[in-house]
Design a protein around this nucleic acid. Sequence first.
DNA 1: CAGTATCCAAGCAGATACTG
DNA 2: CAGTATCTGCTTGGATACTG
Lengths: 164, 164
Amino acid sequence: MEDGTFESLGYCGDTGIDDDVLQWDQRADCEVRQILDRVADKWSLLVIALLDKRSLRFTELRRAIDGVSQRMLTRTLRHLERDGLVSRTVHPTVPPRVDYELTPMGVTLHSTIRALVVWTEEHQNAIAAARAAYDRRAAAEQEAAERDEAQRLAVARAALPIRS
Amino acid sequence: MEDGTFESLGYCGDTGIDDDVLQWDQRADCEVRQILDRVADKWSLLVIALLDKRSLRFTELRRAIDGVSQRMLTRTLRHLERDGLVSRTVHPTVPPRVDYELTPMGVTLHSTIRALVVWTEEHQNAIAAARAAYDRRAAAEQEAAERDEAQRLAVARAALPIRS
DNA sequence: CAGTATCCAAGCAGATACTG
DNA sequence: CAGTATCTGCTTGGATACTG
């Protein structure tokens, strides 16, 4: 079984420093990181959103999500299950049937996430504008640099003796 | 210049389907994804948190964050700048001085993120417990499987004629 | 100081094949 | 059906060296 997530905490534990600004950054963040990593990965969010409406079977999720490979869906579900956000119920029938549903904690997480979604919806235009502006500036600079370069080259060539 | 983030949207655009559950999942998420990816990556969160208190110079950030390589810090800052969350001010002095600070939009994002941080702080115990429980169950199953295997092996060996 | 450029290793994620 | 196992390419991120 491939894994990860066990040793990947980085620096946690109590740092004796708490010097400057980094109070919650170091302390809280090492916890927050893991949750965020869970929340933010490509599929978790989709799964949580889907399961918020009703419990679903493995294949229903697979079909609903579209781009996901069964490997990734399995991994995602295992992680969510491990974190206590999703519960997994195996019905011992033939063929086997497995239902996934949000735990109460999973539901509260989903409503918290909604705040971020709302923020995003409210600001997506501003962000798109910012990006467009940034890219425009970058392109302009790029072009300017190329003009400069051409200039320098032309000057250098003119300064050299014509070689045959 | 290495990049990414430009072509990485996956399927966006209007899907004519809106069949089932996946209304906001497909539509909103393809926008939300990019923001979340920004918010969730290893360093962005730290940078935003640090800059929320006061504007900082490149090296101040570098020192404050500790584990970050200058390459990653630069990338992170460029991304945040492109999204209009952080502003970059170059003072044409010698040696050069560059200040980074949160834009108004960056500030609102930070307060939104706080909700997630709060959620995490409130639930981190529950999550830790869930993980411990999960790992315990997994370990137990693992062990059981190994006992079974040993059993089967012993039986198989007993059933075979003693060779030599 | 504040970067950019290049190289390289590790981990993530997809495709495929197999199983209870 | 609901997975696990394996192989592999590609992206991500760190280390290092160089520049305006």
